[in-house]
Design a protein around this nucleic acid. Structure first.
Length: 595
RNA sequence: GCACCCGUAGUCUAAUGGAUAGAACGGAGGCCUCCGACGCCUUUAAUGCAGGUUCGAUUCCUGUCGGGUGCACCA
């Protein structure tokens, strides 16, 4: 379905042409001044030079051609040369009615669907998730959903940190604590036990402990490195133990990501590609790309146009060991072979931007990817506390994600309980808890996603859980309110299904405003995809929620005596609800029935 | 030291080169005999500084000040 803006731009272009000007000048944009008009066109000013005429003269010429327009109620030339546009009610009503009939409310899926691999999440095995992992999960999930909705095929890969030094540290500490474990007996040839010799809680305690000790104790560190080596070189017992670590840790990670409604298609990690590394390194040497510099194997990725420093991309450390770059490059190789993607997207902290630039250039130079494979890095900013510094717990430690979620759930429950007493929407305690979880997730995700991903933002639990202002709970409240009205309509014998076709020409201004917000749906979602900017969806639904609440206050819906008018409004409410719920699904959360 | 990113009301945040810079919170003041007041309405207040390009700059360029980040064997 043609976008509203394109439709009215067409109308405007025709008018420019009819008045004897270049039709390309007729581009219409949303109004910057809603108090003056609904849409605007600045083409007259852009064309002033070309036609050596005052902009206002051109604008007037064009406006004259629009007197009988079926689209514009009013097209007014205003100094210095703006065309202020007001749409016809019939036109807006018809557009919205057509949206209702379309599968995705008028959004066109992409004409050229891509296969995309999205790398996000990036947790480390044996380390608890902390707030640093939150943004990657939330933003990545949303980007994935938006791209899919646009018609692309997206494979989300969590890319676990499961192969490096931390593994050796954990295994070594397990060995120190219980050297008799069968995994460490190199002469053992039997089957290893099915049950792991530790719990998640123990695992999470062991890693920081071992990490700390390794920094103080050289011999201990050397033992840990030896463990890493034994694992990577394939010793049975170490592999078996490592499998336990992975299984226990992944089960726990899945549980936590589930709470966030974050779902990965692939649970690959660094370990998945370790056996691809030798061949890849050989390829880089054979191709003449890699050379030894200061003892390490590197590939130059500097380009002449660089204004910034671009250190070479390191492939192997001087001791011959693999590093982050190595596994990332090998992962690219694997993804190209297994998924044949058109595009690879990496979502990490923005501090890794230079690093990924190196990796991308290296991948291109060494032909790990095809010429036309797109490589995109999306860097997100830090989540800060109220003091503007990276988010910490009260005593200054790293906040575990689990605890953060617990805190926000509790705060939300407190607010809901309070309100349940005040209003007549009483719920059982169990219902309140369930609702609190749903609304808390919206608070958390909306609070994050409503900011531009690349910027740092302040995590403020009080603000995010408040239903006042531009927040998740406000959106939730609006949806719940709509649902409540629709339910009452049905209770009083209204046929909610039959009402779909009842959408009408708007009869008052706030109804028209609401419809115009609705009609921006396809444009907004598409822009959010093009710019990988979930915050644009937040801005859209916030505007829509506002338009609805405004409409609601001006219009007595259920007491309306004219049945067809009432049905038209209910149909409008249903469409608003559907669009809001579709949009929040793209952000990765959902609305409750009541709150 | 070099490079990159960011400076918008008291706070938080938006704006493909377009009008009087848009919201939110906070402050001030209104609206429930009426569909959910977790709402709505009114009001208050901002582009770090100095130049330049342009008919027109928060946006592009230069300089400057402030903040953040990065600069090969960590990930």
């Amino acid at each position: 379905m043609e976008k509203l803006l394109d439709r009215i731009s067409d109308e405007m272009r025709n008018a420019f042409e009819a008045a004897g000007y270049d039709r390309e000048l007729g581009k219409v944009t949303a109004s910057n001044r809603p108090d003056l008009c609904e849409y605007q066109c600045n083409g007259a000013m852009a064309g002033a030079k070309q036609y050596k005429k005052a902009p206002i003269v051109i604008a007037k010429d064009v406006a004259d051609k629009l007197l009988d327009s079926e689209v514009f109620e009013k097209a007014e030339a205003v100094a210095p040369g703006f065309l202020n546009l007001t749409l016809k009610n019939e036109f807006v009503g018809a557009y919205v009615k057509k949206m209702r009939a379309e599968k995705k409310y008028g959004l066109e899926e992409t004409p050229s669907p891509l296969k995309i691999v999205l790398d996000y999440g990036g947790p480390n095995i044996a380390k608890p998730l902390h707030v640093g992992h939150l943004r990657s999960a939330i933003i990545g999930e949303s980007i994935k959903r938006i791209a899919r909705y646009m018609g692309h095929t997206v494979v989300g890969d969590i890319h676990l940190g499961d192969w490096g030094q931390p593994m050796g540290l954990v295994m070594n500490e397990l060995k120190v604590r219980d050297p008799k474990l069968v995994y460490f007996d190199e002469n053992y040839t039997g089957e290893y036990p099915d049950t792991p010799p530790f719990t998640v809680a123990q695992l999470e305690e062991i890693y920081p402990f071992a990490s700390k000790r390794a920094k103080e104790d050289e011999a201990y560190k050397a033992d840990a490195m030896a463990c890493t080596y034994k694992l990577q070189s394939g010793q049975r017992g170490y592999r078996a133990l490592w499998n336990h670590i992975i299984n226990v840790s992944v089960a726990d990670l899945k549980k936590n990501y589930e709470k966030l409604h974050v779902e990965f298609d692939l649970w690959n990690g660094e370990s998945t590609v370790h056996n691809l590394i030798p061949d890849m390194v050989e390829h880089m040497k054979q191709g003449g790309y890699a050379y030894i510099s200061e003892g390490a194997l590197v590939v130059d990725v500097k380009e002449e146009t660089d204004t910034k420093e671009m250190p070479p991309c390191m492939i192997l450390k001087s001791d011959g060991a693999a590093l982050y770059n190595t596994t990332d490059l090998a992962t690219i190789k694997m993804r190209m072979e297994q998924e044949q993607p058109d595009k690879l997207i990496y979502l990490t902290d923005k501090r890794q931007e230079l690093y990924f630039e190196q990796v991308f250039r290296c991948a291109r130079k060494t032909h790990l990817v095809k010429e036309d494979t797109q490589l995109q890095f999306i860097g997100f900013g830090t989540m800060n506390g109220k003091d503007g510094k990276p988010f910490k717990t009260r005593d200054g430690g790293v906040m575990r994600l689990e605890n953060l979620i617990k805190e926000i759930n509790e705060e939300m429950l407190r607010k809901i309980t309070e309100n349940s007493k005040k209003e007549n929407h009483e719920m059982s305690l169990e219902q309140q808890c369930e609702t609190a979880k749903i609304v808390a997730l919206s608070a958390l995700k909306y609070g994050d996603l409503s900011n531009q991903a690349s910027k740092d933002y302040i995590f403020d639990i009080d603000r995010f859980t408040s239903s006042e202002g531009d927040t998740g709970p406000y959106i939730m409240y609006t949806i719940v309110r709509i649902k409540s009205i629709i339910a009452k309509y049905a209770e009083n014998g209204g046929d909610v299904e039959a009402v779909y076709s009842a959408l009408q020409t708007p009869v008052n201004d706030s109804e028209k405003q609401l419809m115009m917000e609705l009609s921006k749906y396809n444009t907004s979602i598409e822009a959010a995809y093009e710019e990988t900017a979930p915050h644009k969806i937040c801005a859209y639904i916030y505007g829509l929620a506002n338009a609805f609440n405004h409409f609601y206050h001006e219009t007595k819906i259920l007491t309306e005596e004219d049945a067809s008018k009432k049905a038209g409004w209910i149909a409008l409410l249903i469409l608003t609800r559907d669009i809001l719920e579709t949009a929040i699904d793209l952000l990765g959360f959902e609305a409750p029935e009541r709150m």
